[in-house]
Write a protein that binds this DNA or RNA. Structure first.
Lengths: 141, 141
DNA sequence: ATATATAGTTACTAATTGAGACCATGTTTA
DNA sequence: TAAACATGGTCTCAATTAGTAACTATATAT
């Protein structure tokens, strides 16, 4: 887990104008934007967060919910989410052992803003796909 | 730009419960969540979106705003954002030529939900960093 | 006895990203 | 007049990251 790089104070300053809701309190020494986006922005995290947002899941359930994730990446992504304090892991000493993953309170607090973005994604999906077609066509011309 | 994989209809169904605001209309044939997150969720897109959300930028300005992006990735990420219809590119035939990038209306429409997530990131950044320390410590023990 | 399910790990390979040199043009500096 | 610099890139190659497939261990069902 590499220390994410920063963005310029200038950009932070500029963001302040856009991020009115942030409360004017942006720690410019460490960049929260990428520190967080580098994680939930990776290929699988947001998907797993959405899955776990519906209810706790066992390892195998998550694998079935996101069928094209590899076991390796599932393990790794869950560990990262756990490290970030967004997901908690509970082992039940059954046989075979079962492991349940669920959102922590902090993880749950991320869901509303995350879902806002998902909502946008769902609403604009068709437009984006069309834009890609248009772009491909104009590039070919 | 590889065709992103889907998530299961079951998960889509589950998301429906969480994504009340989505209006119950989720196209299960293509997965909007990852189709969008695969893009704005990559290492640089959200950062560039935030930068462009403040005002239009020239190529070099963006490079200075996000100083640790390589020129190669800046070009590539901008092309991808352009292909998705989030960013538009305007060449001015000055000498040397100058190129301005700005958000499209669709790009602008993404800013409020994106900023909600940024706001969350800023507010929870300290907690996340602390969680990582705790996790590293508990793993070492 | 074999197959299946559990939750992973490990080694190897493929894909993505990053670092840095290079390009063309014209303007400023020495 | 020549060298240096700024523009917005591209190209090649090395490093990082992700994905594939095989393997682990134990217990239950067939």
């Amino acid at each position: 887990m590499k220390e994410p790089p920063y963005i310029t104070p200038e950009l932070h300053e500029a963001m302040r104008g856009v991020m009115v809701y942030v409360g004017g309190k942006i720690d410019s020494s460490k960049c929260p934007v990428r520190d967080v986006m580098d994680h939930i922005g990776d290929k699988w995290s947001s998907l797993l967060m959405v899955a776990l947002g519906t209810r706790p899941h066992r390892f195998g359930e998550l694998k079935r919910a996101v069928p094209d994730i590899s076991q390796r990446m599932l393990t790794q992504t869950l560990r990262d989410l756990q490290a970030d304090g967004l997901v908690s892991r509970h082992v039940f000493p059954t046989v075979p052992p079962s492991v349940e993953y669920r959102l922590t309170p902090m993880g749950e607090s991320m869901m509303p803003p995350l879902m806002e973005l998902m909502k946008w994604a769902a609403e604009n999906h068709a437009r984006i796909r069309q834009a890609r077609l248009d772009f491909a066509e104009s590039a070919a011309a």
